[in-house]
């Protein structure tokens, strides 16, 4: 609703600047994400069994002290495969969103700051691209662009995310760029570079970070989907997605095989989404429609 009364304005001004505390669960989530990243980086240093080596004497055994999460149908250690599997998910998630931000964020900020023709043209292009359903575009490109590799997957998803990042950053910057202090800085002759880095960037940082994390979560889900469709990294390299995919054929014999990678994936996603959501509400930024 565009109109609001004087009363509302008064209410807004009087409302004390108070933000929700982050809370314990937030820190638990941060710890969990940190632990997963740690595991992904140091998987080969950690005392884990070889994720590719099958022990044919212990096929499809349930969780035990020997194999904490049990073994799969080839006798490989599930715990080790889950930890190694996080590598693919996390690399794709982070790599792709970094590409998205690397291209989309500066463009979005510049467009919102400059306005005018530059903004108009760029925004039209981005909206045209946005109309192309990103997931379908990703599936399409990956199915033609063979042979597939982790690098290609990251690049394709990263580029597909550019228009989304552009839109979020542009909207966030727009709401800051019209504030008094930015206009004041402009009038006082601050350089564009200074305004962009010193005035605008810190103000859009919370929403940018929040969307970054939620973006990583979304991309990890997408990578899993691609793994299901056989468009992600090929077995035997473990990834959460292809582990679940392989497990579903032996679902009735060994539930653990599907259970652990699913649990790892869901917990990681919950943690990422929660951190992202909390950061947004903590800095009280209204929900930008993603």
């Amino acid at each position: 609703m565009s109109n609001f009364s004087l009363e509302d304005a008064a209410l807004m001004v009087e409302r004390p600047e108070k933000s929700e505390p982050l809370g314990l669960f937030f820190w638990i989530c941060v710890f969990w994400v940190g632990l997963n990243i740690f595991g992904a980086i140091f998987a080969n240093v950690l005392p884990l069994q070889n994720p590719l080596f099958g022990n044919y004497n212990a096929v499809n055994v349930g969780p035990s002290l020997h194999h904490l999460f049990g073994t799969d149908d080839l006798g490989r250690d599930i715990l080790s495969r889950v930890v190694y599997g996080s590598r693919v998910s996390i690399t794709v998630g982070l790599g792709a969103i970094l590409i998205g931000y690397g291209i989309g964020a500066p463009l979005g900020m510049l467009a919102a700051y400059r306005r005018g023709r530059f903004d108009a043209i760029l925004t039209t292009i981005m909206y045209l691209l946005l109309a192309f359903p990103a997931i379908i575009a990703t599936i399409a490109v990956l199915s033609f662009w063979t042979p597939r590799s982790l690098f290609k997957i990251i690049v394709v998803i990263g580029i597909a995310s550019v228009p989304l990042v552009y839109r979020v950053i542009r909207t966030a910057t727009l709401s800051v760029a019209t504030k008094d202090y930015v206009i004041a800085a402009k009038v006082q002759g601050a350089t564009d570079r200074r305004i962009l880095l010193k005035e605008l960037l810190p103000n859009i940082a919370p929403i940018a970070l929040s969307f970054f994390l939620i973006g990583v979560a979304t991309i990890i889900i997408l990578e899993g989907a691609l793994a299901f469709l056989g468009l992600s990294v090929n077995p035997p390299t473990p990834s959460w997605g292809n582990m679940i995919n392989e497990a579903r054929t032996v679902l009735s014999q060994n539930v653990w095989l599907a259970f652990f990678p699913s649990l790892a994936l869901c917990l990681f996603l919950i943690a990422l989404n929660f951190i992202g959501d909390r950061i947004r509400s903590h800095f009280d930024v209204t929900e930008v429609k993603l």
Binding site: M1, N3, F4, S5
Partner: peptide
């Protein structure tokens, strides 16, 4: 109501 701009359902 005080404000006819907001008190009718648009």
């Amino acid at each position: 109501f005080q404000d006819p701009m907001t008190s009718l359902n648009p």
